[in-house]
Design a protein around this nucleic acid. Sequence first.
DNA 1: CGTGTAAGGAATTCTGACACG
DNA 2: CGTGTAAGGAATTCTGACACG
Lengths: 84, 84
Amino acid sequence: MEDKVMNIGVVRDLTGLSERQIRYYEERKLIFPERTKGGVRKYSFEDVKRIQEIHQKLQDGFRTLELRKKPHTGQRMRLSGNGS
Amino acid sequence: MEDKVMNIGVVRDLTGLSERQIRYYEERKLIFPERTKGGVRKYSFEDVKRIQEIHQKLQDGFRTLELRKKPHTGQRMRLSGNGS
DNA sequence: CGTGTAAGGAATTCTGACACG
DNA sequence: CGTGTAAGGAATTCTGACACG
């Protein structure tokens, strides 16, 4: 439970991701930043780590929904093509 | 050397001090927050600690100039009246 | 699905100044 | 000296939407 102290701009710089991506992960219920009274998002360093993990998983071919509960039953290769 | 990630509003809430006080301590060269390209100050948790120390010292009767080099040669009581 | 972008508004922060003591 | 405040502008962030594939 670290302090939620960073604005999205800092998280953007720290992770190298876009604000769009960061907000989207929240929309998918993968991260839960706090808000100031005015509605500005505040993130913790834990959030930053989590965001990087999420991005990595997406790179590996997972979909955001699958990331809500850390999966451990099925690797899901995503080199080319899909499994459908 | 911690990351400078907090806006002054967070530091205000964390320390309970006013933005005016925080900016003033910088003006007196006691703390050195970074700046975004746009000019917005960014503080680290170390800065927060330092700010609290500075405020405590001021409560004890020190003046900002005296705090630049941590004093260790003269206690300076400040209960009532001054030493002049 | 995950991400980019332009749009307009709102929250936050900045500086310089005047005030007090 | 250390801090409060009103003033106006600028930087940052927010939401909802359209786009692509």
